[in-house]
């Protein structure tokens, strides 16, 4: 879990072009400058590339916060 969060922090920093960005499980779109629908696409694609997994389209549209992304990652990576 901690491992996911630190990887995700790196990805978020790249996508939102902010090297100081900190995130937690509770972080949601409204908390981050520039997290709009376009950046959301880029974010999802970057996470998929990094972990070499695919979210379903439905899933990726419905993530409400970072915690839900981590939950989904845990499920997908533990099943492999």
């Amino acid at each position: 879990m901690q491992h996911f969060l630190s990887d995700l922090t790196k990805i978020f920093r790249t996508v939102f072009q902010n090297p100081l960005l900190e995130i937690s499980k509770e972080t949601k779109a409204a908390d981050i400058d520039g997290w709009d629908s376009l950046q959301h696409f880029i974010l999802i694609l970057s996470i998929e590339k990094h972990f070499n997994i695919k979210f379903t389209t439905e899933e990726s549209r419905n993530f409400l916060n970072v915690g839900q992304i981590i939950d989904s990652l845990e499920k997908k990576l533990n099943h492999q």
Partner: peptide, 9 residues
């Protein structure tokens, strides 16, 4: 192609 990006955006 990326169907996800196509269908959603």
């Amino acid at each position: 192609r990326d169907k996800k990006l196509y269908i959603s955006g």
